[in-house]
Design a protein around this nucleic acid. Structure first.
Length: 441
DNA sequence: CTTCATGATTAGGG
DNA sequence: CCCTAATCATGAAG
């Protein structure tokens, strides 16, 4: 504080001694009759200024105040400001422009995309709870991972926001402080509002460079987190047994058309509690039930590729579903079958005996099921039965014959027969024919 | 360690 | 978007 007068002192000294502009100015104002008086006045002021350093602090304060109130003060101050602006500001004024930092923008975008800086998306514990709820009551092994991820992310987010707020507050505080200081000093020192503005700009730049560091390290943290959790999607977690069971059941009972609809997929995903993918695709929320789709995709291709390998499994599931399906629908078809006797003869028996099974399929095929029964149920049953038959019949032969395609729904060029209706199954040419010959042997 | 099974990803077709 | 086919990468079994 006590160097204030000295500052003033030197400033005035330089101004008076070295600058012609000031002299010019003063001459302009002193053209009149009382010019002598004015000069005397200014001389007085300067004298006071010069001596102010020699005085005690209290005295100096008083003197300063007196000077501040002097009628010539504004004029002198303006002159000083003008000079300063011409000399100092014009030099540094060139570097005013501030390019919108690309790096900063990139960081901002990333933080936004990762949900760190964007609008609050549910918060920490809420997010964890949501993740847990989404996974349902079943095997929550993967949801644990994700809630873990979310928890960590929200932790990062919280730190980021706290720090950001701290910086902002500090920045504001410091800016206010500096502004007050400058304003205070501007009463005794030539400081223009522009200069204050510039100072504020400098402060803000400094602080924003700190902010950038914060953003950068936050980005790094998020990246690390991502690589540890999300990008480990390739990390295979095997579905639990129940899930595979459910999926297999569906697969083998829809063998002729193992393409679950959107709803079916959703249901399966829910039942197996393997549906996680909704949020992993960061932007959109589509591609639901990716897991189920993946599973069916893999299953189809692998089944087709090597049917022999899946025979046992298929047999098992087919038998299982056949058992349950018969329980449900035997009565229904029994009611119907007798009314439509067909060439194959007796129907309705679903014993685990290949001959009988064949018969029942025959009846299903040859008979007019189109009019009578619940489509889905029958369809599934037909699939199942066909499968059982192909197993029982094919065990001795189809394996030995190294068939690439079996009597299922697969046609020669490799696709699943694209008729989803029972007609594909009913077509008596391929499937049942071969099965028949097999079974009769 | 190798091998196999299997979930996920990618390329390419529609 | 859906699909298939090939491939990658990992977890578990031997």
């Amino acid at each position: 504080m006590d160097d204030q007068p000295r500052l003033m002192h030197s400033s005035h000294g330089v101004g008076m001694a070295g600058h012609p502009g000031l002299a010019q100015h003063m001459q302009d104002g002193t053209g009149g009759a009382d010019g002598e008086g004015r000069k005397q006045d200014i001389g007085d002021i300067l004298q006071q200024i010069m001596t102010i350093t020699d005085q005690s602090l209290d005295e100096a304060q008083a003197r300063k105040h007196a000077l501040n109130c002097h009628r010539m003060k504004p004029a002198l101050f303006n002159v000083l400001c003008e000079i300063k602006e011409k000399t100092v500001l014009s030099i540094r004024g060139a570097q005013e422009e501030e390019p919108p930092d690309a790096q900063l923008m990139r960081l901002d975008n990333m933080l936004l995309a990762e949900g760190v800086s964007g609008p609050e998306k549910g918060g920490g514990s809420a997010a964890a709870a949501a993740a847990a709820a989404a996974a349902g009551g079943g095997g929550s092994d993967n949801s644990v991972e994700h809630s873990d991820y979310r928890a960590k992310l929200s932790q990062i987010r919280q730190i980021y926001h706290t720090e950001l707020e701290k910086y902002e507050q500090a920045c504001n505080e410091f800016t206010t402080h500096v502004m007050n200081l400058l304003r205070e000093q501007s009463r005794t020192r030539p400081i223009s509002p522009k200069e204050i503005e510039r100072m504020v700009g400098i402060i803000h730049r400094k602080f924003s460079s700190i902010q950038m560091q914060l953003k950068q390290s936050t980005c790094e943290a998020v990246m690390i987190l991502r690589s540890r959790f999300l990008d480990a999607r390739r990390k295979r977690r095997n579905f639990n047994k129940q899930a595979t069971e459910i999926l297999n059941e569906y697969f083998y009972s829809h063998l002729s058309n193992p393409y679950p609809s959107e709803e079916a997929k959703e249901e399966l995903g829910k039942k197996c509690s393997i549906t996680v993918s909704q949020w992993s695709r960061d932007t959109k929320q589509l591609s639901n039930n990716l897991e189920v789709s993946n599973w069916f995709g893999n299953k189809r291709i692998r089944y087709k590729k090597n049917i022999g390998k899946f025979q046992e499994e298929a047999n098992m599931y087919a038998a299982k579903t056949a058992a349950t399906a018969t329980n449900v629908s035997t009565h229904g078809s029994q009611a119907n079958s007798p009314s439509t006797p067909n060439s194959a003869g007796s129907a309705g028996s679903f014993n685990m005996n290949s001959g009988d099974l064949f018969m029942s399929v025959q009846s299903l095929n040859g008979d007019s099921y189109q009019g009578a029964q619940v489509g889905a149920n029958i369809q599934s049953q037909v699939d199942t039965l066909r499968h059982v038959i192909s197993q029982t019949g094919g065990y001795s032969e189809s394996l030995a014959a190294s068939q690439i395609y079996s009597p299922q729904g697969i046609n020669a060029n490799g696709g699943w027969q694209d008729a989803p209706t029972p007609s594909s199954v009913t077509s008596p040419t391929e499937g049942p024919g071969s099965v028949h010959s097999d079974t009769s042997n």
